[in-house]
């Protein structure tokens, strides 16, 4: 197992290097003039020249690449023209918000999607099944940003039940930071009013973001459960008189979880992309909104920083999924296959 983990970490390193190649290509090769891109849209010709020399953009590409990688290893992601801060500092400030949103949405998607998939499989071809099928085909077809807008319109504006956007109301003071995760901090400090306000603000974005993931998790789990429930050992368990609930929860679910887990890993990546749109709709101060605000004001360095951070995140999530396989299914435990 240890050998496998080390191997996977080495692969992660290779992948990260590949990702750096892509971001380098996007920032130095794709645009006609990277110096102009770095200087921003309002820079004069002499400023562009200064930047060209200052950033070594007059050097050969491979020299530039070496410089780029060394810079990033030192934590230098450049400077945002818009916020006038180091990109790394901005990312550190905004990332916890995105992390909470995505994690919350994934927890909700799994907590609802797995049981719903089981129910649909057990009550196959009844109204339960048809309802979940409707949700699962709609979930991946509805534009998340539009769903978010319509929820805002209905729940926040028409019914006035929940706040429109943001992380906290104006009257609520954020808790003293410990982990910089608002929910965790509010919990640790025992600030219940803040916690409630944060939850109210988070509900609509979480629902919007989790919907497509919920849909696919439900769908995969249903299909796998149907197949698993037809296996001989399930029939055998039933013949032995083991209660239905125990058969489903203990014997079938564990086997159906492997493909579901693959879907969770895949959908986590989708969420990291979808969060960009959802944060824009709900004015959620995460790295997605940061990237969009930077992109529309042609502020380039922050977008690259966000791309790297999201890529790293997705890679780590896939690593976690791979490791979880071995725990769930001894047959594919990596000690034998790696």
């Amino acid at each position: 197992m240890l050998v496998y983990v080390v191997k996977r970490l080495a692969l992660l390193g290779v992948m990260l290097f590949g990702l750096l190649c892509i971001t380098f290509a996007i920032s130095h090769v794709v645009p006609g003039d990277p110096a102009r891109l770095a200087a921003g849209p309002d820079a004069s010709a002499s400023m562009v020249e200064t930047i060209r020399v200052q950033y070594g953009l007059d050097q050969p590409l491979w020299v530039q690449f070496g410089r780029y990688v060394r810079g990033i290893l030192r934590g230098d992601l450049g400077r945002s023209l818009r916020t006038r801060e180091d990109v790394l500092a901005d990312l550190v400030r905004y990332f916890p918000n995105t992390f909470e949103l995505v994690t919350g949405a994934m927890l909700v998607a799994v907590a609802l999607g797995v049981p719903a998939g089981i129910l649909a499989a057990v009550y196959r071809n009844t109204w339960v099944d048809h309802l979940t099928r409707f949700v699962s085909v709609s979930g991946v077809a509805i534009p998340a940003f539009w769903l978010g807008l319509m929820l805002q319109l209905l729940v926040a504006l028409d019914l006035g039940l929940l706040p429109l956007g943001g992380r906290l109301g104006l009257m609520t003071a954020p808790p003293e930071p410990i982990t910089h995760l608002l929910f965790v901090d509010a919990l640790l400090r025992g600030a219940w009013a803040t916690l409630a306000d944060a939850a109210a603000h988070a509900l609509l974005p979480v629902v919007t973001l989790c919907f497509p993931a919920l849909a696919s998790i439900m769908r995969v789990n249903r299909a796998e459960m149907i197949e698993t429930l037809q296996q001989d050992y399930i029939v055998n368990a039933r013949a032995q008189g083991i209660p239905d609930f125990r058969i489903v929860a203990r014997y079938a679910l564990k086997n159906a979880m492997v493909p579901t887990l693959t879907m969770i890993g895949l959908r986590y990546g989708w969420m990291l992309g979808g969060t960009v749109l959802v944060e824009t709709v709900f004015d959620w101060p995460g790295i997605g909104l940061y990237a969009v605000n930077s992109a529309v004001s042609s502020d380039f360095q922050p977008i690259m920083g966000v791309t790297l951070l999201i890529g790293l995140n997705f890679m780590l999530a896939n690593l976690a999924v791979d490791l979880a396989y071995g725990w769930l299914d001894p047959r594919i435990r990596p000690a034998t296959s790696a």
Binding site: I22, I26, G273, A295, I303
Partner: peptide
């Protein structure tokens, strides 16, 4: 694999940014 390790929308935003 490297391309698949970044959500398509995020990478597209980066390219449109450039």
């Amino acid at each position: 694999d490297v391309f698949l390790s970044v959500p398509a929308l995020v990478l597209a935003i980066a390219i449109v940014g450039a």
